[in-house]
Design a protein around this nucleic acid. Structure first.
Length: 492
RNA sequence: GGUCUCUUGGCCGAGUGGCUAGGCACCGGUCUGCAAAACCGUCUACUCCAGUUCGAAUCUGGAAGAGACCUCCA
C-alpha cells in the first residue's frame, strides 16, 4: 500500500510535500488537543476530525502510527496583565469547584462528543498536569543552554538571544522579530521580561492562583507553550513527523514550541507542520472568546437559538469533511441540512450495494473510480473531491439497481470493499441506524404495516394504503415502493 | 498600524491557463393508482478594472469587499 504517495501541505515550507516519515514505517504525530475548561464546540470538531482523517489514512497506508493528542488541564494564562490567573483556576472560582473537578467534567464531555463523531482515540492522550516534572526539566535545559533567564521566580525565554544563534524565530508564522518589537512594545506592561515578545517558561503563582506546583524557581506553573514540547518529546522522541493543530495556534503557540525545542535539543523537532483552518459563522470565526460558538451538544440536540433543528454527529462529520481542511468552512443551517441530505443519499446507496444483482460483465470502470478516490485523498487530504467520487459511486449503484448498468460478481466484491474502505475506514463515517433487538422488533412492525399496505394496494383499496403511508410519513418514515415490494427508512 | 489569506452559480464547496467538480435547492421528463425514492435531462458561476497570452475564472498589476493572526483560542 505504501506504493501510494501521500502529499501534505507543510506550513513550514508553505508548500505541498511528499510525506516521508523519519523512521519508516513508523509515524509520530502530535496534535494540540482541547483546553478542558469549557464545552467542546464545533470548532473543536474540526481539528479532531481532520487529524482523525489523517490518522486513519496513515494507518490505511500501513504506517505504524503513534498519535498523541494532549489534554490541556493546566490553564494557560488568561492574559499578561492578569497577574497570572489561569483559565481553569478562574472557572473553578466561578463555579466553586476544584480545578480538577472542572477538568474531569469537560474531559468526559469532550470524549463523549468525540466518540459520537466517530473520532478514534489517539494512541496516547497525555495531560499537562501529569507532566510538570518533564516541563521543569525542559526549563532547566533551556536555562543551561543560555536561552532563558529568571526574574522574580519566573523564567522567561530569551527570544532575542535565541534568534541570534538560530535566526529562525518567526519562520513558521512568517513574522519578523523587528516588526514584533515595534508592534508590541507599546503594549508592554511587563517589567520582568527583557523584551515584550519573550514568553514564560515558568510563571510564579500569585497568591490567589490555586493551580500551582513547587519548583526551584517558585511555587508556580509551567508556561503557555511548554506542555506540547514536553509531551511530544517524551512520547515521540526529540524529532518526529507531524505536528498538527488549528491555524490560530500558529502564532505564538507553535512558533514558541519551535523555539523551545530547538533551544533544548539544538535542532528542529518537527518535520511536517499541518494546520486546519477555522469554522466561521456568518463569515466570522467561531470561538470561545467571541461568544458565537455552538457546542457540540447543542448541535446534537438542536438547543441553540440559531439552530433550526438538531444535527446528528455524522452530519457534522460529513459537513466538515465536505470542505478541505485548509479552507475556512462557513456554518449555516442550510449547509448542514444539505450535508445531512447528501449523507443520507450516500448511506442509502451503500446499503443497497450488497443487494445488487450481478451480471456476467461490469459496464463501468471500477479501476478508474478507485484511482480517483486515492488521488483525491492522497492529495493533501482532499476529502471533498473524494466525496464527489463517492457520489459518482452512488450514481453507479443506483444505475445498476435500475438495470441500466451491470456489475460482475467479483467486481461487486471489489466495489463493496472499495466503498467500505473509503467511507468507513478512511472518512470514518458510519451508518447511524443501529440494529439492536428492540429495533429489530420495531422494524418488523413497520414491515407488517407496509405488507398490509401492499395488500390494500393489490385490492385497489387506495384509501387504506394511503392512510398507512401518509401516517408513517408523518411520523418521519420515508416509504419507497419498489417493483416487487417496498423499502423504508426513518429520517433523522 | 504590521503580516497574511480569501472573494466561484439560490446555498455549501472543489478545481484548473483551453476539456463536467460534487452535494443541497429549483425546474422538466421517465417510473407510480397518486406519491416518495431512483433514473435521465435542463438551468443559474467564477467581485471589479487593466495587462500577459492564440486563449484566463485560473498568471501579473491595481481597486473594492471580507476574514485571520499580531492577546487565551481549534
Amino acid at each position: 500500500m505504501q506504493s501510494k504517495e501521500l502529499v501534505i501541505f507543510n506550513t513550514l515550507s508553505k508548500k505541498k510535500e511528499v510525506f516521508k516519515p523519519i523512521n519508516f514505517p513508523n509515524v509520530g504525530m502530535y496534535v494540540c488537543g482541547p483546553t478542558v475548561y469549557g464545552s467542546a464546540h464545533l470548532g473543536h470538531a474540526r481539528p479532531a476530525i481532520t487529524f482523525d482523517l489523517l490518522f486513519r489514512l496513515l494507518k490505511h497506508l500501513d504506517y505504524k502510527v503513534r498519535y498523541v493528542r494532549n489534554i490541556t488541564d493546566v490553564g494557560h494564562l488568561e492574559n499578561d496583565a492578569d497577574e497570572g490567573e489561569d483559565k481553569i483556576a478562574k472557572k473553578a472560582r466561578l463555579e466553586q469547584l476544584e480545578p480538577m473537578e472542572i477538568v474531569q467534567y469537560y474531559t468526559e464531555e469532550y470524549h463523549d462528543a468525540m466518540r459520537m463523531l466517530n473520532v478514534q482515540s489517539p494512541s496516547i492522550e497525555p495531560r499537562a498536569s501529569a507532566h510538570i516534572m518533564e516541563q521543569m526539566d525542559i526549563v532547566d535545559e533551556i536555562i543551561k543552554n543560555g536561552f532563558a533567564y529568571e526574574t522574580n521566580g519566573s523564567v522567561y525565554f530569551d527570544v532575542e538571544k535565541y534568534n541570534e544563534k538560530y535566526k529562525t524565530y518567526g519562520k513558521l508564522s512568517g513574522r519578523i522579530l523587528d516588526d514584533l518589537l515595534s508592534n508590541t512594545r507599546k503594549l508592554d506592561g511587563q517589567d520582568e521580561k527583557k523584551n515584550s515578545f519573550d514568553f514564560a517558561l515558568w510563571k510564579k503563582a500569585s497568591p490567589e492562583h490555586i493551580m500551582r506546583w513547587k519548583s526551584k524557581w517558585s511555587d508556580g506553573f509551567p508556561g503557555w507553550h511548554l506542555e506540547c514540547t514536553a509531551m511530544s518529546t517524551k512520547y515521540l522522541g526529540e524529532t518526529f513527523d507531524i505536528h498538527g493543530g488549528g491555524m490560530d495556534l500558529l502564532f505564538p503557540h507553535h512558533e514558541c514550541e519551535i523555539a523551545q525545542s530547538t533551544a533544548t535539543i539544538g535542532k528542529e523537532a518537527v518535520k511536517y507542520w499541518v494546520h486546519n483552518n477555522m469554522i466561521t459563522i456568518n463569515g466570522q470565526k467561531m470561538g470561545k472568546s467571541l461568544g458565537n460558538f455552538i457546542t457540540l451538544t447543542e448541535l446534537f440536540t438542536g438547543t441553540h437559538k440559531i439552530l433550526e433543528r438538531a444535527y446528528s454527529p455524522m452530519t457534522i462529520r460529513f459537513f466538515i469533511l465536505q470542505a478541505q481542511y485548509r479552507s475556512t468552512l462557513d456554518f449555516s443551517n442550510e449547509a448542514l441540512q444539505a450535508a445531512d441530505k447528501g449523507l443520507q443519499r450516500l448511506m442509502t446507496a451503500i446499503s443497497t450495494l450488497p443487494k445488487l444483482k450481478t451480471s456476467d460483465a461490469t459496464s463501468f470502470n471500477l479501476d478508474e473510480l478507485e484511482k480517483k478516490c486515492y488521488d483525491a485523498i492522497l492529495d493533501d487530504l482532499n476529502s471533498p473531491i473524494l466525496i464527489s467520487q463517492l457520489f459518482e459511486a452512488v450514481r453507479i449503484i443506483n444505475s445498476i439497481e435500475a438495470g441500466k448498468d451491470t456489475i460482475s460478481k467479483s467486481d461487486l466484491e471489489r466495489f463493496e470493499k472499495l466503498i467500505s474502505t473509503f467511507v468507513y475506514d478512511i472518512l470514518g463515517l458510519q451508518n447511524e441506524a443501529s440494529s439492536s433487538s428492540s429495533n429489530e422488533a420495531y422494524a418488523k412492525a413497520i414491515d407488517l404495516l407496509l405488507t398490509i399496505r401492499m395488500e390494500a394496494k393489490a385490492n385497489k383499496d387506495f384509501a387504506t394504503s394511503d392512510k398507512i403511508r401518509n401516517e408513517l410519513t408523518q411520523m418521519g418514515f420515508e416509504i419507497k415502493d419498489k417493483k416487487d415490494g417496498f423499502d423504508w427508512t426513518l429520517k433523522s
